[in-house]
Write a protein that binds this DNA or RNA. Structure first.
Lengths: 240, 240
DNA sequence: CGTCACTTTGACGCTGGTCAACTTAGGTGG
DNA sequence: CCACCTAAGTTGACCAGCGTCAAAGTGACG
């Protein structure tokens, strides 16, 4: 129904009613987090696996100089850290950006689910591969794209991810990220993000206003971003 | 003995003689690759898992503009793409940097090994988590570190990785990477890499000459890099 | 001994950071 | 319903870090 975790995994593998029931049960008691509240901090001992059901969450790391780098955005349906318990401590923090509902699944329960439900295991391994691909794409962006290209590329990525879980309208979607958050994600300053957004708005490619993105000219935006349309698409074998 | 894959996995989990025999057998027929030869290209259908036994290998991606971004370095003992077969096509290429020996393990064989050898499974999942941590650290570097810091940080990382598989001497190690390759890895130009290396040499922190790095002042280098000494260390629970 | 890839250096300019001020929007309490 | 407060967004002036372009130097290898 509106369990976006199940919805997402269904796109990655065939799930039986039994599989879905197990997933629903495992995520049935989510906890609410306030905006800016940490789920877990760098240095903490890894705990259960997190599954975001509502809201936006990010992984981030603070450098000794006080600057922040956001490493990933987690949207409803995204999970993290399949085998994380193997690590002694977290090398980054995870924080809610908006008020969020997040389920936790203990490692034992997780292992039982992976063992007893091969379809779930397949879907989750696929999801992890996609996440790794996103990490690599971020490196490419940071290393070889201009600031304008980076911003456009991130918007393309987030739009497609939002669309795949049914969170988009016609040519627009909610993006509850401040310009400071975008800057921390893209390795830029909020000031420069602002200038880039103005440029993209004036060029007629896209506009970001009050937490909502309007894609004015998809073709132009994709072109500016140098976005590979198949990036999050063709990458998976046909589910099932 | 000198199978560095086994040596590396031993650092991540207790392996029985039986486990080691299975690993040795699976990697007993490596293939030789010449420098600059691709193991697999972006767009190809994913094949077997690769295990680097000798030489340096990298993941990379070419942008439409022709620029290249290196996404990871693979050293002897490093493997890649545990579940890669779930993807329809590669989103990046993998290439030998130096003449290399690389074993391939078919997916069926891989799955059999993961099922039949829980210690191997544990070690390989740990290795993958460490690799993901390295990806995240690269994002942090690209986003929030200056060029000098980036270079110093990469050298620290590579030194520690080389040391963990016994490839370092006293304060120096072989680094068969041209300045162009370093530039492609760090999102810079070869010209600027050259200037940064000169600066690091003059400051007495480190020197790179003819494929070999000499760490002149470890404390200074770590300080310049803002390197977290525990980055690749404390991160694992005690093996065994 | 010539070729080719790699390294080194200088001059110059653009992208994006810094600093500072002002505007806008949203929330809270009187 | 307004006054106030704060976080977020916007803009301009200035400049530094790093890219670009060009040329010369070095070493490996046939």
């Amino acid at each position: 129904m509106d369990n976006r975790f199940i919805k997402k995994l269904q796109g990655l593998a065939q799930l039986t009613a039994n599989d879905k029931a197990a997933l629903l049960d495992a995520t049935s008691a989510p906890r609410a987090y306030a905006a800016r509240q940490d789920l877990i901090r760098e240095g903490d001992e890894p705990g259960p696996m997190f599954v975001v059901l509502e809201g936006w969450v990010c992984r981030y790391k603070i450098l000794p100089t006080g600057t922040r780098q956001i490493l990933a955005f987690l949207m409803p349906g995204d999970a993290c850290d399949l085998h994380i318990k193997l690590l002694a401590e977290m090398d980054h923090s995870i924080q809610a950006i908006t008020p969020s509902l997040v389920a936790t699944v203990s490692r034992d329960r997780m292992n039982a689910m992976l063992d007893g439900h091969p379809n779930i295991a397949k879907a989750m391994y696929s999801a992890q591969l996609v996440d790794e691909g996103i990490l690599r794409a971020w490196i490419v962006s940071m290393g070889r794209r201009s600031s304008t290209e980076r911003v456009a590329h991130l918007i393309c990525e987030l739009y497609l991810r939002a669309r795949s879980i049914g969170l988009t309208g016609e040519g627009h979607f909610d993006l509850p990220l401040s310009q400071l958050v975008l800057a921390d994600a893209l390795g830029m300053t909020a000031v420069h993000i602002n200038r880039v957004l103005k440029e993209l708005r004036l060029s007629g490619a896209m506009a970001l206003n009050r937490g909502s993105v309007t894609i004015l000219d998809p073709v132009k935006l994709i072109h500016v971003a140098g976005f590979d349309e198949n990036y999050l698409h063709r990458r998976l074998r046909q589910a099932g």
